[in-house]
Simulated scan of single mutants.
Amino acid sequence: MELVFDGHNDVLLRLWRNMKAGGDPVAEFKHGTPAGHIDAPRAKKGGLAGGLCAIYIPSGDLVLKEPDANGHYVTPLAAPLDYAPSLDIALEKASIALRLDRAGAWKLCRSIADIRKAMADGIFAAVMHMEGCEAIDADLANLDVFHAAGLRSLGPVWSRHNIFGHGVPFAYPMTTDTGPGLTELGFELVKACNRLGMLIDLSHITEKGFWDVAKTSDQPLIASHSNAHALTPVARNLTDKQMDAVKESGGLVGLNYAVTMLRDDARDDAATPLSDMVRHINYMVERMGIDHVALGSDFDGATVPREIADAAGNQNLVAALKSDGYADDELAKLCRENWLRVLGQAWGE
């Protein structure tokens, strides 16, 4: 079995929602559930050894548009969120992450050594990530607090605007150049992440924002859960020029399992073959090289191919890649080693 370290999931969102409905997030993750995609038993079965677990503030007003007769759709950006309620939700999700760690349900990792030890011990290696920084104040004062709690990665924006920058809409077909980039506060956020050794994720930012980060950050460029725009031209996928910059910086792109970002028609259809995942991997490997491609499932945040279904099915993708000719050392890079390398660079290890 090829162990996988995954660049993006929304398991904290699912656990938080169920907690609000009276559930126990520790028991749900530790003992398993038929809901969603990730828990400890299914992760172990599928070789999902760890990943970046997102603190994401939901946008209740966002409803994905149905495709028109040509299969095209444009979903307007979600409205900006207020700071105070966003901070409340972020703290509740960080609390869940810490409670899981205290209960031994997973290991909250702050270093590459932590990740490797957890993987060796057979414990899910969780890294706290923030997807959209609505919970961070304009003075960046609480960024230090979240860092102390274990936050080691963030994306300045989700698919909405905030005080730090502008996000891309859910739309097909659409260019990645959908609006402005970082704000002045966004540039300060990037510099603060560089000082703290916190990874910066570019998967939801506009193309202008991507280039703003590229010219400001001293880290490798990372898009944790994005695919090839040349194959599936949704606004969130990356152009060839962006991938060239990722390669030049020593960064990586994590394959997003979301079917809307894999299919030729970008439809939300679980009957999406593994071959669509393989062709995006192949395209990115050909463009950037094997050292700059990894996995970023978006488990618990998107519809994934039926042949994967959930974390227990991860080895089906590994088998498909192996059948396509990837050698064992290449699979190790795609599945975990590339992530561990760039995390170590971002964290100054």
Rank of each mutant, 00 (worst) to 15 (best):
A223E: 01
H204P: 08
D114S: 04
H72K: 14
L15G: 00
D10K: 03
G289S: 07
A113P: 02
V342D: 01
A49D: 05
T75K: 11
W347N: 05
D82N: 13
K30Y: 14
S226Y: 06
I89Q: 13
N70Y: 14
Y73V: 04
G51C: 08
Q242M: 15
Y257S: 09
K107W: 04
S153E: 11
R17L: 06
D328W: 05
M128L: 15
P85S: 12
P85M: 12
T303E: 09
E248Y: 08
A319F: 10
M277Y: 08
R341K: 09
I308Y: 07
V74Q: 15
E330V: 00
D88E: 15
I308L: 14
T260R: 15
V11C: 11
T260M: 15
A21W: 00
E349G: 06
A327P: 00
M19A: 14
Y73T: 03
P156E: 11
V157Y: 13
P169H: 12
A120P: 03
D68F: 12
N338W: 07
E184Q: 13
A21S: 07
T272L: 15
A223W: 02
A79S: 15
V63T: 14
E307G: 01
F164Q: 04
R236H: 04
R263T: 07
D276S: 14
A103V: 03
C335D: 05
S217E: 04
E248W: 08
K93W: 11
Q242H: 10
L154P: 01
R336F: 10
T303D: 06
C53R: 01
R116G: 08
R341S: 01
R306H: 10
G46L: 06
S323T: 10
R236N: 04
V278W: 11
A135L: 10
A148R: 12
R336C: 11
F146T: 00
G301T: 05
D328N: 06
A84N: 13
T272V: 12
L140K: 03
L108F: 10
C53E: 12
K30N: 10
N194G: 07
E349M: 05
E184G: 09
R14K: 11
L154T: 02
T272K: 13
H229P: 00
C335Y: 06
H292W: 12
A230H: 02
A125S: 04
D240W: 09
Y257F: 15
G22R: 00
V63G: 02
T206G: 10
D68C: 06
P58D: 06
L143M: 06
V285L: 13
D39M: 05
H225A: 09
A171E: 12
K117L: 14
M130Y: 09
V190E: 11
V259C: 12
G50I: 02
T303C: 12
L15V: 00
V190D: 07
A319I: 05
I222R: 02
D328H: 08
M277W: 05
D324L: 02
H72L: 09
W16N: 02
D300S: 08
A126Q: 09
G47E: 09
A54M: 10
A214N: 06
A311D: 04
L15P: 00
L202I: 06
V342C: 02
D328F: 03
W158K: 07
G181R: 08
T175H: 13
K208A: 15
L48G: 03
P220Q: 02
V304G: 02
